[in-house]
Design a protein around this nucleic acid. Structure first.
Length: 679
DNA sequence: GAGCACTGC
């Protein structure tokens, strides 16, 4: 078997532009070194150093700028320091946002080393649960979500003289909202004659015009990086089976290339990756003599941490490392030594349908930007090769950019946040990419049902309850659940349940040990549903002194359990600040379920005479997700945390409730629903 | 009747 590829004319992004200030062509690659290089010398050897003076000159003048830098240009570590060294923005803090916690922490650590200062002094970072800054901090790295939280307390971002939004091309919901927040803050501060706010957008090669236009035609500065050339191959024919194509390509490379060349394959999900891992290992056992050995490693987010770490280890001598990964290896995890990238061109991603309120998780084609991001993973240390398992025609037909997250998610949180930021009209808010009006309306309706907003003469007004809801770092429906709990005297338990639901699953389900897992989980299972079952698990965990050994024996993810404690403590602090009474319902679970029913009445489903379920809201047929403890049960009436459409429309995280409770919670709503059902 | 892309406050 063999796969036919051809090599199209070489293509590279062209950094040449009206504002291109330097073209750097990879002449200064770090060779093998024996002595550690002094930090100052390292800084000077970065490509960006050549352009330092010019860059400072331009940034001093500009109110806003867009900086396009290839990976390895050093922009994120150097530009904040250049500004500081040139006394630009010394009156306030230079804030640099990152989409991910680890990035914020490691960048702050690196820059504080370069400044030869203790972390938290001149250079610090703020992420959830950790504030490593002080009065002295002038360069602060933080997650974009964290800056957004700060903006709620201070929409003008008064403490900041410069805000740098880094990795803007990733277009997280938080970054997208921040675009609007910093633009508004900049304008208002100017109007009020306050300290000006300098805004710098840093991004990879895409989206340039959009960013520049949004900031009133801000100049675009280009920086070249240390990316090595990558050859890109396309298939000659469209592939009907991308898994088969990936398999063939991997073994073709394996038989031809030196064993030190590692391969990274982009696939779509856990199941697919586990299956492919097994197939590769089986085939690798029966390779002809003289062929190198193969070490196959799966990589996806829900994989145990120690197994994720394996991808950083070198394979044994004469073994080739083959990593089968989800898009986690596109941005979140960077693996060194990858020579070959195999791109199936597919990704599993969430889409949101505002009409049905349904999230759909589906395998779909990647965008061009994503394809280039994957390709770039092959050229980090040396030249690389990328095999795209689709034709060049197919590539040309891909969307240019991935649709920004804000246009494909439920906006309830975003709208609540904007309201608390005192945005006068959500529908006309200056989003860099507008979500559909349907999607905004649907979010407002959800918030209305939760009692977070009121409509007064076409105006959407935040209620006192809504204002309290915005104080919690949670989805509005979970904030509402906490705020409902005092009425049912079960805040202690609800805090635990909400904390458990807002981290990744604490349940560890290794596919190979399914029977063992089921047997050990039996002792925690409550016939009242998943919420109470989770509460039982947490109780046992706490009573046994948060024992790690116990976690292992019971297939509980200990790390996530620790995270639950941190989240719970944070939520509890917020309750205390609001002077909420915090009571325990002790052994009574009825109160807890009533509380859930009252807060989540719009997420109810009823058993039909034919044994299926339909939602009360839209009469949509739904099923119980196989991960639920109620999977084999048929309670008459349940509430669920979310609907997820995969192969079917599934309810996830269920709780058995009385239909009467739902009616009590929202009599008008259910009267309306009954009417519409009859018609 | 049988399943879970990825972040983050």
């Amino acid at each position: 078997m063999s796969q036919d590829f051809y090599h199209p004319p070489a293509k590279k992004f062209k950094p040449g532009s009206p504002h291109s200030i330097h073209n750097w062509k990879g002449a200064m690659q770090p060779g093998p070194r024996k002595q550690p290089v002094p930090i100052e010398q390292q800084r000077r050897s970065l490509p960006i150093y050549q352009t330092r003076a010019q860059l400072i000159g331009q940034l001093r003048q500009l109110e806003s700028a867009v900086i396009i830098g290839e990976t390895g240009s050093g922009k994120t570590t150097q530009i904040p320091q250049y500004l500081y060294e040139a006394s630009i923005g010394r009156q306030g803090i230079i804030g640099v946002t990152q989409p991910r916690r680890v990035a914020a922490i490691s960048l702050a650590t690196r820059v504080s080393e370069e400044r030869k200062t203790e972390l938290s002094k001149l250079v610090g970072y703020t992420v959830r649960f950790e504030d490593v800054t002080s009065e002295e901090t002038k360069i602060k790295f933080l997650t974009d979500g964290m800056l957004l939280r700060e903006a709620i307390g201070d929409p003008l971002l008064r403490r900041y003289s410069v805000v740098i939004l880094d990795e803007a091309h990733e277009r997280t919901v938080h970054t997208d909202v921040l675009f609007g927040v910093v633009k508004t803050a900049q304008k208002k501060r100017k109007e009020l004659g306050k300290l000006p706010l300098k805004v710098i957008i840093m991004s990879a090669t895409m989206d340039v015009d959009l960013f520049s236009q949004y900031f009133n035609g801000a100049p675009v500065l280009y920086l070249e990086g240390r990316q090595h050339p990558i050859q890109v191959f396309y298939t000659k024919q469209p592939q009907s089976d991308y898994l088969q194509a990936a398999l063939v390509t991997v073994f073709q490379i394996h038989q031809e290339a030196p064993s030190s060349h590692d391969i990274l394959v982009f696939l779509t999900g856990q199941e697919e990756i586990e299956a492919m891992t097994k197939t590769c290992r089986d085939i690798a056992k029966h390779l002809p003599d003289g062929c190198p050995q193969m070490t196959v490693m799966p990589l996806y987010a829900s994989l145990a941490h120690f197994q994720q770490l394996r991808v950083f280890q070198n394979a044994p001598k004469d073994h080739r490392k083959v990593i089968l990964s989800t898009n986690i290896a596109e941005t979140s995890i960077t693996i060194t030594g990858i020579k070959y990238v195999v791109d199936t061109g597919m990704v599993k991603a969430k889409k949101y349908n505002p009409e049905s309120g349904l999230e759909v998780l589906a395998v779909q084609r990647v965008s061009k930007a994503q394809a280039w991001q994957r390709t770039g993973r092959a050229g980090r240390e040396d030249s690389g090769i990328c095999y795209r398992l689709y034709t060049e025609d197919e590539f040309e037909k891909l969307e240019k950019m991935t649709i920004p997250e804000i246009q494909r998610c439920n906006l309830a949180s975003v709208v609540l946040q904007l309201l608390v930021l005192r945005v006068p009209n959500i529908l006309t808010f200056d989003f860099i990419s507008k979500p559909s009006p349907d999607s905004i309306q649907s979010a407002i309706e959800q918030l209305d049902l939760l009692g977070a907003v009121e409509r007064k003469e076409d105006q959407i007004i935040l209620t006192p309850l809504g204002k309290k809801m915005a104080a919690f770092p949670l989805e509005p429906k979970f904030s509402k659940t906490i705020l409902t709990s005092p009425k049912f005297h079960c805040t202690e338990e609800i805090l635990t349940i909400v904390a458990l639901l807002s981290v990744d699953s604490v349940l560890h389900n290794p596919p190979a040990k399914r029977d063992e897992v089921q047997a050990s989980r039996k002792k925690f299972i409550s016939s009242e549903g998943d919420h109470i079952t989770l509460l039982n698990i947490h109780r046992a965990f706490k009573n046994l002194g948060k024992n790690k050994e116990w976690c292992r024996e019971n297939f509980i993810n200990g790390r996530n359990m620790v995270l639950v404690s941190e989240v719970r403590a944070q939520l509890r602090d917020i309750c205390i600040k609001m002077s909420m009474p915090i009571e325990s319902s002790r052994t009574d679970t009825r109160n807890i379920r009533q509380c859930l029913a009252h807060a989540l009445f719009m997420n109810a489903a009823e058993l039909q005479p034919d044994g299926t379920y339909t939602t009360v809201e839209t009469h949509q047929p739904v099923s119980i997700h196989p991960s639920s403890v109620l999977f084999h049960c048929k309670p008459a009436c349940v509430i669920y945390n979310e609907l997820l459409h995969t192969s079917k429309c599934y309810m996830r995280d269920l709780c058995v409730v009385d239909a009467d409770w739902l009616f009590e919670a929202a009599p008008e709503y259910f009267r309306r629903k009954l009417k519409s059902a009859k018609n």
